[in-house]
Amino acid sequence: MTQWSFYVVSIFTLFGALGTIMSKNAIHSVIYLILTFFSLSAHYVLLNAQFLAAVNIVVYAGAIMVLFLFVVMFLNIRDEASELNNNKVMIAASIVGGTIGLILVAAIRLTDIPRVNPYTYQVKTGFIETLGKLLYSKYLLPFELVSVLFLIAMTGAVMLGKREKGERNF
């Protein structure tokens, strides 16, 4: 049952990922990307990491992709996509992309992934209580540093978006 759901979800993920890079229309790409994020969340649920799944939906599928869609709708991208007709650009892009893909596959093959022992495996590993206790005890410093980073990013965004003196707002 779990295995079959894994296959179904994987097909959806790959379909979404391929659609993202292969569709001509930028809006369609964004919608395929949303599908990809959604099926990735389904993968997290299959791994019993419900909190990660929910946060992935809230942050990526819910907030970031809405902004993507928002920006793409304002731009008229169809007129600016002339590079796609240029063969040299296409060949160069394929070579670069293929090389990066090859390096990634090689890295994954070399990575030593520890096998999960089904007898000592804790079902609650991905649950929010466990995660919260770990974040606030063992990984407290990295966690706080990340929050400072977010605060800086937020302040920077506000600074960039602020109206300068004398500048008209519309």
Partner: peptide
Amino acid sequence: EVNIGILWVFGVVSLGVYGILIGGW
């Protein structure tokens, strides 16, 4: 009954805007 109940609600609410956004575009 899941241990992320309210996050699920929040996630679905944040997806709710897609229907309007996609339809409007």
